[in-house]
Write a protein that binds this DNA or RNA. Sequence first.
RNA 1: GGUACCUUGGCCGAGUGGCUAGGCACCGGUCUGCAAAACCGAUUACGGCGGUUCGAAUCCGCCAGGUACCUCCA
Length: 491
Amino acid sequence: MQNDLVLYNTLHRKKEVFKPIHEGRVGLYVCGPTVYGDAHLGHARPAITFDLLFRYLTKIGYKVRYVRNITDVGHLENDADEGEDKIAKKARLEQLEPMEVVQYYVNRYHQAMEALHVLPPSIEPHASGHIIEQIEFVKKIVTNGWAYESEGSVYFDVEKYNKSHHYGKLSGRNIDELLSTGRELDGQSEKRNNVDFALWKKASPEHIMRWPSPWSDGFPGWHLECSAMGTRYLGEEFDIHGGGMDLMFPHHECEIAQSVGALGHETVHTWMHNNMITINGQKMGKSLGNFITLEEFFEGNHQALTQAYSPMTIRFFILQAHYRSTVDFSNEALQASEKGLERLMGAYARLLKIGASSNSSIDTKGIRERCFEAMNDDLNSPIVISHLFDACKSINMISDGKATINAEDLKELKEVFELFIQDILGLGLDEKTSQSAGEGYKGAINLLLDMRMDAKVNKDWATSDKIRNELTALGFEIKDTKDGYEWKLVK
RNA sequence: GGUACCUUGGCCGAGUGGCUAGGCACCGGUCUGCAAAACCGAUUACGGCGGUUCGAAUCCGCCAGGUACCUCCA
């Protein structure tokens, strides 16, 4: 830890030196998925962004408790308080128990995350498993006078809250105009004001997911779970709350109001928001229907995709942009990432094989410091990657016998690559390279390629090309090197 | 309509006052039986207009274009 870690705090709209509440420990909460459909590319952005943060904080010595929730109840389809529950709707359409829907998509989400090398969080609480905590949270808000009951439902009184607090401070909006001009015209609503949001909703008779409460048989409002579970596992005050920018309003704004309403103070010190992934310049999202699921990327099974993209390509693509920038999806951009990742990982594989000389003819010093510096500057992963690419050039020269490196520098370079590529950026070595294949399998391929080497020595090009062509047809990629060969399975 | 943000070379994408980001593609060369990979070199930038400054992609103003949030969305 050469310098201080600086993070952009959405709440103050500036970069701030990160100081944990408790020395050596970090509490991190990130909004997870609503599990009523497969995860798409957009879901990979916060998962990877905060995985990067989680990994980095851990690597620089913090003990991190990372909580990422599963929303399995309370997230309504349309207006925050009127529509059908997303999970319940899916269950009704598929004729399944709501919890079957939840389990199915949670399993698939976990598979996708594992493929992307997103580490599991420390705790992954389900909203439906914390109904008691949520009811207690609502009780406090009601007791403190910030909420009212109406027809068995409980709503947060935004107008009252806004008189003494700033509802909109996070998203930078002033709610006054909305309050003065946004009255309901039809007068049908149970709410006093249409900016009020639900803390507890009374369930209609056909609604399956329901729990008893002091107000009605019903279910919690969507915004409540994060306040209740964050507090439950990270305390009344914690360090970092993350999520997508689109959750800033109203979701995170409501969380702030709920915390102040229940506890009398805010809970979150640093708010972090990742930007969106766009497709043809537009946000990729459920509502626009222009999303491509992660599985479709992995399998190349979507009309907008000209090929399949590996999970590591997707991860690298996301890490090549800073998390607060939008990043536009295109086949061209992904193919560039694929090639770039190949270059990076190829050099890494070579690094593990090169030998030390008595002196270094190239300068690899300072890479560690420069990478840390970039990470400390609000997780600037693209800059980290550019420094690693600089080192790739040196590694390739050494591998080609055009440069040398001494034992000390070599050891340092290996450590830096392992630290940043594997541990921090989370880019695993390709599982199908000769490095990690099983012994028997590896031996068989090596035997074939040794035979090809012999054929080459005898200038038997027919045999050597036959071996290479047939292995290529089976999905292997063969590259000749100065005194041997490299291979990997690419399909 | 309100609020915020963005516009960098063929493509992606860093960079917030002076110093070649990086990757991909393309072109020339080296190496190679061929191919791939690798290395060397060349080329292509800061939406437009004006201002501040010794100096602006970077600060300020105006204009043009685009996006996000304001309803669910990562």
